[in-house]
Design a protein around this nucleic acid. Structure first.
Lengths: 363, 363
DNA sequence: CTGAAAGCGCTAACAT
DNA sequence: ATGTTAGCGCTTTCAG
């Protein structure tokens, strides 16, 4: 209830509100003695600036909107974590909006956030095509950075992982392990990640086997599709399945177990993203880790650049960060034990990296 | 850029700003003819209320702060999803703060959110003891609802799952399946969930075996501890391990595989929470599902009640919702196949419920 | 270097 | 039913 205002601090420190404002904001030079008095009074009274008033006056709320398709997508929590930390470090607050994969809801959230005077927006578009209009509209009003997924060129700054590089890492790894009859379990749709990963597979798989680039099936980014996809490529008798993300890979692992195929002995499986599940699967899933913290930091940097941006509008940037291959048991050489589970006597022993067991659950 | 203000709309519709405000806010009766004119003008000019100004004047931002310990805890994304949806449905926006399990960071976020004039707070305290002071302070300033974890009595309204009831479901299920040599792999610490689940086990396990209540080991809510905990109880030759949450159970499953124990034939494993991973494990993890949507709805209701609350301060409420047992392969009867994986030929076939494969991954 | 004063856009008395 | 007026708490000219 103790709503201490600038005026209270001014009274208590015997100077004007203007001076107090200057001291606290550091906008202009102030006598070091008065400054000290002001700071002391502010501290003593427990002064907290009223952001609403500040926002009204300075046309900046210190708030950014974060709009994403589905917080329950297992890849996003880590990204949200890093983004909020990066933004909080800059003194900004984060308004979160979950769109439930619905472009209409997304458009509504975007409009609402703009009405709430967010200084900037961080958007993971729900749909490359159907999100475009609303996102473009929003980008015209405030600095906006696209993350993870694209939605057409020329809309805004963007930052994402280099999907092609990640797929190349996977293919090189499988080639080195002697896998040749590889198949790709991918996702259809216009989502940039889906398309880029598929293209990279097509471009690189030929090095393993001339037929490999053609062994592609497309569904969506789900566990269910991963299971079905295995059946769809089974007649090729693959010795490796390259999955467009970890959920597809998880489904593939399930189905392969059911079919009696031994992973990695009979067939290798790889994923993409390195969601927490990947390290917990049996066997541990070889996958491509997105540099989540760096992605978040880059996004924050891009926003800062736009928000500072005095010298006119800087050119649009599309930043791609290199991913990292995380090798686990699911792609181990055919006749060796899983490399990182030395104590494991059972054939389906799980492998883990050190990071995988750190999380704690809800209580 | 088109910053249309109330004044612009007033000018365009030939009446005063007050009238416009009344029409748009519906605060007071207005002539239906003028009202129409105003609405038309507002629409035509693309008027968007300035929330900062409104907040400054009415001391209400339409914003609630959501403070949680770790968004990467696999149980929270679903909760965050439901909470944001419930609040957005009421026209509120959500400011998200992740504390990284640090009570000091939590206190800072709480103070910052109060400075940003949130109308209310939703808090999952990081630490039952060390969060108490900051939470109590915040609760004195705005309506505050505690979720999932407690932090001492008499602080604020709270809503959580009925941990005791959940544990009872698990024990009944294991008893019916003929398991007797059960052990509890729990978590130490003051967190309410840890304590409640442990107590409920101690209270109920005696019905299976007089020794069972004593077979308890305590660590934390992590996969790593789940692995270690198995070793710690192994000398009891258990035929079931009851885990305080799903991550512990996941670790237990891993370690049991390594030890060559067959789940569920030799030993049953149960978890708590029903995180997405639970349905994906091999075999599927029998666990206690928290009624996430209902928890969120109750929390939103409590906030509404406080925010509306004209007739003085209503009494504090502690709401407990009943959980649901989700039976999967990890606790199947000893000599039967996993019940929900009829097509599975392999011994370690995974079982799934319909909901488990619905999510899509990031792209 | 500091104070006085003018609003930012909106709502809520208070008038009419 | 509508208009007039006074601020909400802050930043920022503009004077001194």
């Amino acid at each position: 209830m103790a709503d201490v205002t600038l005026r209270d601090v001014a009274l208590a420190s015997g100077c004007s509100v203007a001076t107090v404002s200057r001291v606290l904001a550091g906008t202009r030079p102030v006598g070091s003695e008065t400054a000290e008095r002001v700071r002391a009074a502010a501290e003593r009274l427990g002064y907290r600036p009223n952001h609403a008033a500040r926002a009204l006056r300075s046309k900046a709320t210190g708030t950014v909107g974060l709009v994403l398709p589905q917080i329950t997508n297992p890849f996003y929590p880590a990204l949200v974590r890093e983004l909020t930390h990066a933004l909080h470090a800059d003194g900004r607050a984060v308004l979160l909006a979950d769109c439930d994969d619905d472009p209409a809801a997304e458009a509504e959230h975007l409009a609402d956030l703009l009405g709430r005077q967010v200084d900037a927006l961080l958007v993971i578009p729900a749909d490359a095509r159907r999100s475009r209009e609303a996102v473009a509209l929003a980008a015209a009003r405030v600095p906006l950075v696209l993350m993870d997924r694209g939605c057409g060129p020329g809309i805004a700054d963007s930052v994402a992982v280099d999907n092609a590089a990640g797929m190349a890492l996977v293919l090189d790894h499988l080639a080195a392990a002697g896998r040749r009859r590889v198949c790709f379990l991918g996702a259809a749709g216009t989502a940039s990640a889906a398309a880029e990963r598929r293209s990279a597979y097509e471009a690189g798989a030929g090095a393993l086997d001339p037929q490999a680039p053609g062994r592609i099936v497309l569904g969506d980014f789900s566990v269910e599709w991963g299971r079905a996809a295995v059946d769809a490529v089974w007649h090729h008798r693959p010795d490796a399945v390259v999955c467009a993300n970890d959920l597809i890979a998880a489904g593939a692992l399930q189905r392969l177990h059911e079919l009696g195929a031994r992973v990695p002995h009979d067939i290798a499986v790889t994923g993409f993203d390195d969601i927490p599940l990947a390290g917990l699967a049996a066997p541990g899933l070889t996958t491509v880790r997105q540099p989540v913290a760096e992605l978040a930091a880059e996004a924050a940097r891009l926003l800062d650049r736009r928000l500072a941006g005095e010298g006119g509008t800087p050119a649009q940037r599309a930043i791609r960060l290199a991913p990292e291959l995380v090798v686990r048991g699911s792609s181990a050489p055919r006749h060796a034990a899983a490399p990182d589970a030395p104590e494991a006597p059972a054939p389906l022993a799980n492998s883990r990296t050190s990071q995988d067991s750190k999380e704690e659950a809800a209580e």
